[in-house]
Design a binder for these strands. Structure first.
Length: 481
RNA sequence: GAGAUUGUAGCUCAGCUGGUUAGAGCAUCAGAUUGUGGUUCUGAGGGUCGUGGGUUCGAACCCCAUCAGUCUCCCCA
């Protein structure tokens, strides 16, 4: 007999894990609602054509495709075509609608864009929505990377105002402060990156350049230099880029970095535009933020040491972000104190709905990676203690008349809004107590012969061990705390 | 797509240069204890050592293949 298993990169969530995950979802949901975003859900699967070509070559490879049903029930002509297409699929990267026409969603942004286009006449623009649903990627799983994971996105479409950028920055800030995760929000603009490519005289090599720059934290300035050279950048342009990145490292203050960039970007109109956008976004954020745009000290614990980290927004021109559809401001959130990739990212996309035929609709959005956020919070031990508490009260089942008495008490407890349960079998006392202990039940109620005859119940606080016999209404007061 | 590493009881893992009946802790069940849990004591059940081949008198251990998990690169949340 083989042991049961689940597909690679997927997980079961135990009751305690679900509680903690729901805490994250609830926190994000209430913040999204506070900022005026409306909930939206879309199907787990989309038509494959909706997804292909939106995430780059690598992205297409990672889309989970769904095999069509009824492949055997086709006409001979269709079957012949299926055979031909199958051969093609085996020989190269290709997929055919006769074999597969649906796929699991890869992110929440593209389905959202599809939704906006389909419902453009019903929506009031600017349209603000949040969405919390699982997505699937056929990637090789590793630390912080799963094949099924949840994203929580907030997007605004139909407005080019940088107030939107600022609001999304506030949402990030508020969310991570509330969750207790020390963070850095890196901010950059695709336009600055384009400006940099322009200054080097290689506007065509934008992607190569950004991919290389993005690795500066990992491989250092020398590594980046090497990669740029490998990609065909000449010594002069490598110097220009190095100078820009190094200049940024020299300043810790965002305004100084912005001023520095502005002087270096002279000669690139698009670059200057990017600088202006970032500056304006940060300015709006400053007036909108609960924290006045200042860094926020967030305490955390590593190896028993109490530390804290000044969390906030950092202008970082090495930030690239993989998805091709971004055109303006881009952001990414990195946790501090844990070795983990980004726990959130987003940016502005000027023409995402254009892919589906609706032109000139700009959008901007952010995404939260819930599974990574969970892993970070677990590692930093910042989940609130109260989440692990189980049912408030359990009634011990003494059988016979006492069972009927217990059921009647149980009904009263629930009517009073107290989460309660009864041990369903008249099992040995010891067994019932052990069960309650294991379940982290807060109070155990003992409705036995003695109590029943006096129309009372014994209440035992399972944390302190304290016990007393009281009436049902007094019991309810105790359980309410 | 490339690489590293690990697969032994429900879980975490021991198991020496190959040697006779494969162990421990935790968990489970039963009992000490038929109205007082978290601590203790006693006992029990549970494994064709991931799978398939090969080498050998003999394989959990060595070799080959295969499958699965974990991690790294690529890329990403």
């Amino acid at each position: 007999m083989s042991k049961p298993s689940i597909p690679q990169g997927t997980r079961d969530f135990s009751p305690a894990e679900v509680r903690k995950r729901q805490y994250i979802f609830n926190t994000l949901r209430s913040i999204f609602e506070l900022y005026g975003f409306q909930p939206l859900e879309t199907p787990s699967m989309e038509n494959l054509v909706t997804l292909t070509g939106k995430y780059g070559e690598e992205g297409d490879r990672l889309i989970f495709k769904i095999l069509n049903n009824g492949l055997n029930a086709q006409t001979d002509d269709t079957k012949k075509k299926m055979n031909d297409e199958w051969e093609k699929m085996l020989s190269k990267s290709y997929s055919s609608p006769v074999i597969t026409e649906r796929a699991l969603r890869y992110d929440l942004t593209i389905p959202f864009a599809r939704y906006v286009v389909m419902h453009q006449n019903e929506l009031a623009f600017p349209f603000r929505r949040y969405q919390m649903q699982p997505v699937w990627r056929a990637d090789r799983p590793q630390k912080g990377r799963y094949r099924e994971f949840w994203q929580c996105d907030a997007d605004v479409v139909g407005s080019t105002s940088l107030i939107n950028e600022a609001e999304l920055l506030c949402i990030y800030e508020e969310a991570f402060v509330t969750l207790g995760i020390p963070f850095v929000i890196k901010i950059n603009s695709r336009k600055i990156l384009a400006g940099m490519a322009e200054l080097c005289g290689h506007p065509d090599k934008l992607i190569d350049m950004t991919v290389a720059l993005d690795k500066v934290d990992k491989i250092g300035l020398h590594g980046v230099e090497k990669e740029l050279t490998d990609k065909g950048f000449d010594a002069k342009s490598v110097d220009i880029l190095k100078e820009l990145v190094r200049g940024e490292i020299a300043y810790s203050n965002n305004q100084e970095i912005i001023d520095e960039l502005r002087s270096k970007m002279q000669g690139s109109e698009i670059g200057l535009e990017g600088v202006r956008e970032i500056e304006k976004s940060i300015e709006y954020h400053k007036s909108l933020s609960k924290y006045g745009g200042e860094k926020i000290k967030i305490p955390f614990e590593v190896n028993g040491m109490q530390l804290s980290f000044s969390s906030g927004i950092n202008v970082d021109i090495s930030l690239a972000r993989g998805l091709n559809y971004y055109t303006g401001v881009i952001v990414e959130v990195i946790p501090y104190g844990v070795k983990m990739g980004s726990i959130g990212g987003g940016g502005r996309y000027d023409d995402l709905t254009g892919l589906f035929g609706l032109k000139n609709l700009s959008g901007v959005g952010v995404s939260f990676g819930v599974d990574r956020i969970y892993d970070v919070m677990d590692e930093l031990k910042v989940f609130p203690q109260r989440l692990v508490e189980g049912t408030q009260a359990m009634l011990v089942n003494f059988g016979g008349e006492n069972e009927a008495y217990a059921l009647q008490i149980l009904q009263q407890l629930r009517s009073a809004g107290i989460a309660a349960e009864i041990y369903p079998d008249a099992a040995k006392f010891d067994k019932q107590m052990k069960y309650a202990n294991k379940r982290s039940i807060a109070f155990v109620l003992l409705p036995g012969d003695e109590e029943r005859l006096k129309n009372m119940v014994a209440v035992k606080n399972f944390t302190t061990g304290e016990q007393k016999t009281v009436s049902v209404s007094e019991c309810i007061e105790i359980l309410r705390g």
